[in-house]
Computed example of a mutant assay.
Amino acid sequence: MKTTGIHHVAIVCSNYEKSKKFYVEVLGFSIIEETFRAARNSYKLDLRVGNGDQIELFSFPNPPKRPNTPEACGLRHLSFEVDDIDESVAYLTSHGVQVENIRIDEITGKRFTFFKDPDDLPLEIYEK
């Protein structure tokens, strides 16, 4: 098998409208398509991130909570590349998003930090 990249990342949210507002209005991702699936009582929101990456945002009735331990098996966090981390942190905090202190990656020397989405999913911004 030869892969050519990651097609999308899927996220299940507990409050669709709140998460849609966060990802579209705060993070600035554009909507590709929004679909209500009546048989599943579920929304699927396809979002464009950057020049071609995609996030699928799903809503389901009563989804189970995510384990809170960062080292639990499964996806640890989702990271977005930014040109200017200081500008990005200022932008997020101006929108009421709590952001951790900026750290330096000991391997690459690049700056990064973490924040959370409305369901406490850990998100990272990593300076280009």
Results as ranks from 00 to 15, higher is better:
14 S>D: 07
90 A>L: 12
86 D>E: 14
62 N>G: 03
85 I>K: 00
44 K>P: 00
11 I>K: 02
74 G>V: 08
48 R>Q: 14
18 K>T: 11
73 C>A: 15
18 K>N: 10
60 F>Q: 12
74 G>H: 11
53 D>K: 07
91 Y>G: 00
31 I>H: 04
73 C>Q: 13
27 L>D: 01
23 Y>G: 03
85 I>L: 13
17 E>A: 14
86 D>W: 05
58 F>E: 03
14 S>Q: 14
93 T>D: 00
84 D>C: 10
16 Y>D: 01
80 F>N: 00
22 F>S: 03
27 L>V: 06
64 P>H: 12
23 Y>L: 06
31 I>N: 04
22 F>I: 01
85 I>Q: 04
91 Y>M: 10
13 C>D: 06
68 N>H: 12
10 A>Q: 13
73 C>S: 14
67 P>H: 09
92 L>F: 08
32 I>V: 14
43 Y>K: 07
63 P>V: 08
89 V>F: 07
37 R>H: 11
74 G>C: 08
74 G>A: 10
31 I>G: 01
89 V>P: 02
53 D>N: 14
29 F>S: 00
31 I>V: 15
55 I>W: 09
17 E>G: 07
31 I>A: 03
67 P>M: 08
44 K>I: 14
34 E>T: 05
46 D>G: 06
22 F>H: 00
26 V>K: 08
9 V>I: 15
61 P>N: 11
9 V>N: 09
43 Y>G: 01
30 S>T: 15
35 T>K: 15
78 L>R: 05
35 T>V: 12
91 Y>V: 01
68 N>E: 15
60 F>P: 02
81 E>C: 07
72 A>N: 13
83 D>N: 14
41 N>M: 09
53 D>P: 00
63 P>L: 11
26 V>P: 00
85 I>D: 05
55 I>E: 06
72 A>T: 08
59 S>V: 01
90 A>W: 04
13 C>H: 05
